[in-house]
Simulated scan of single mutants.
Amino acid sequence: MRRSVELQIITEALQKMGPHAPATRIWGRAPGANSDMAAEGNVWAGEPHDIALHIVTRLYGEQKAEPLSPLAQAEDAKRARDLVGEVGILMSAGADLESAPWHPVRPGDLVHVHYETAGTAATFGETYQIAAGRHGFLSMQLLAHTLPTDVDPGGMVGCFAVEDDPDPLMELWFEAGPHRLTIVRDGRPVHIGGAR
């Protein structure tokens, strides 16, 4: 996320350079080139975004792609007609959840999920609270979210709330992915998925 902000700042700065802003292409002379601009290799040109991306990559290294949720990984394997891979991904994700030292969740736990910008949907977060259900299982109810009230693409806010579920975290773990979750128990984080 931070690199994308820096990339945007550098791109905007490059676009505002020179007397003909906003720049759509930036031209330059190769270091050590003489005044003969026509000589091959003396002149270069580039798009502001491409130059900014080059600068950010030189400063911070390659930006790694965000991990996919277990469900998205399984869907990729399914599209590739890799049944063994698909089943393996789903089984592994379930085993990762069930073997976590804080699992199962318990009443009072807070579960926060972070959503990155996707299409026209803004970056936002939701916090759910785990509570005892009416029939012996657990419920997970939406406690708060950071999406503006006038923006909710397709009723997404609160979609992971569940009533009386033996494992209320399962669907969220598979669909959003453990890398997007932070779980807090007794005021202390027990799972920080965004930590790298």
Score class of each variant (00 low, 15 high):
Trp44Asn: 02
Leu172Thr: 13
Val151Asn: 01
Leu83Ala: 15
Ala132Trp: 01
Ala30Asp: 13
Gln63Ala: 07
Asp36Leu: 11
Leu181Lys: 02
His145Pro: 11
Leu71Asp: 08
Thr127Gly: 03
Leu172Asp: 04
Glu163Pro: 09
Gly85Tyr: 04
Ala95Thr: 15
Phe160Arg: 00
Thr127Pro: 14
Ala38Glu: 07
Thr117Lys: 09
Gly88Asn: 08
Ala93Leu: 04
Asp76Trp: 08
Thr127Gln: 03
Asp50Cys: 03
His179Phe: 06
Ala121Asp: 13
Ala161Lys: 03
Gly119Ile: 03
Ala144Glu: 11
Pro168Gln: 03
Ala144Lys: 12
Pro31Ser: 11
Val5Cys: 04
Met37Val: 15
Arg2Cys: 10
Ala144Arg: 10
Leu147Tyr: 06
Arg185Ala: 08
Met1Trp: 11
Glu126Pro: 06
Gly41Thr: 01
Gly28His: 04
Gly46Gln: 06
Ala52Asp: 07
Leu53Lys: 14
Ala100Gly: 01
Glu163Leu: 10
Val113Arg: 01
Pro22Asn: 05
Glu163His: 06
Tyr115His: 04
Asp76Arg: 14
Pro19Leu: 05
Ala21Cys: 06
Asp164Glu: 06
Ala100Asn: 05
His112Lys: 15
Pro153Lys: 02
Ala13Arg: 14
Ala45Pro: 04
Gly61Arg: 07
Phe174Met: 09
His49Phe: 04
Phe160Tyr: 02
Ser92Asn: 11
Ile89Ala: 05
Pro101Ser: 03
Ala144Trp: 10
Leu142Cys: 07
Trp27Ser: 15
Asp50Tyr: 08
Thr57Cys: 00
Cys159Met: 06
Gln8Ser: 15
Glu116Thr: 13
Glu12Gln: 05
Ser69Lys: 00
Gly119Val: 01
Lys64Ile: 12
Arg25Tyr: 14
Thr120Pro: 11
Ala95Phe: 10
Leu169Met: 02
Phe124Glu: 04
Gln141Pro: 15
Leu7Cys: 05
Val56Asn: 08
Gly154Glu: 00
Met140Cys: 13
Lys16Val: 07
Gln141Ser: 14
His179Ala: 02
Leu181Arg: 01
Leu181Glu: 01
Leu59Thr: 10
Gly133Ala: 05
Ala176Arg: 00
Pro101His: 04
